[in-house]
Amino acid sequence: MKIKKRNLLGVCLIIGALFTGCGSKKSTIIELKGSDTILNVSQGIAEKYMAKNPDTKIAVTGGGSGVGISSLLNKTTDIAMASRSMKEKEYEKAEEAKVKVQEIVLGYDGITIIVNNDNQVKDISSKKLGEIFRGEITNWKDIGGTDSPIVVLSRDSSSGTHEFFKEHIIREGKKNQKEYGSQTLYAPSNQAIKQEVKNNINAIGYIGMGYMDDTVHSLAVDGITPSVENVADKSYPIAREVYWYVPENSDKSEAIDNLVDFAISKDGQEIVKNEGFIPRSL
Rank of each mutant, 00 (worst) to 15 (best):
A192Q: 04
S125N: 02
Q120K: 14
Y206N: 09
P247A: 14
G205M: 04
V99F: 02
A59R: 07
I238M: 14
E90H: 11
R155S: 12
V41R: 05
I114R: 05
K33E: 14
E31Y: 10
N139Q: 08
S24C: 10
G130T: 04
V216D: 12
G276K: 07
I143V: 05
I132C: 14
N119W: 00
T28C: 03
I278Y: 02
A94D: 03
F165K: 03
K266S: 15
L153F: 01
K75T: 01
N7E: 12
R240H: 14
I132P: 10
G44Q: 13
I58H: 00
G208D: 09
S182F: 12
W140P: 00
N230W: 11
K98N: 10
R84E: 14
K5I: 08
Y211F: 14
V260R: 02
A51M: 13
G68W: 03
D109F: 02
I124E: 02
L129K: 12
R84Q: 11
T184C: 08
G276F: 02
G16F: 01
K52S: 13
E167D: 15
T161W: 03
K100Q: 12
Q191F: 11
G68S: 06
G130W: 00
K175M: 12
G223W: 07
A82P: 06
I58L: 05
V105W: 06
Q120C: 07
K2T: 07
S65M: 05
D147Y: 03
G276T: 02
G268K: 04
L282D: 15
E248D: 11
A232H: 07
L39E: 06
N53M: 01
Q43W: 13
K198G: 02
I69E: 06
S189R: 01
A203I: 02
K89E: 08
C12F: 13
M212V: 11
V60S: 01
E172C: 10
I111D: 13
G210P: 01
S126C: 15
T28M: 04
R6G: 12
E131T: 09
G68I: 02
E136C: 02
A203S: 11
L9R: 14
L282Q: 10
S281P: 01
S159L: 07
R280Q: 09
K234Q: 08
N176T: 09
I264H: 06
S27C: 14
E196K: 15
D257F: 09
H162G: 07
V246N: 11
K273I: 11
P279T: 03
L39W: 11
K128Q: 14
D222S: 06
P188Y: 01
N258H: 15
G173T: 00
K4E: 10
N200M: 03
V216I: 07
N230E: 04
K48P: 05
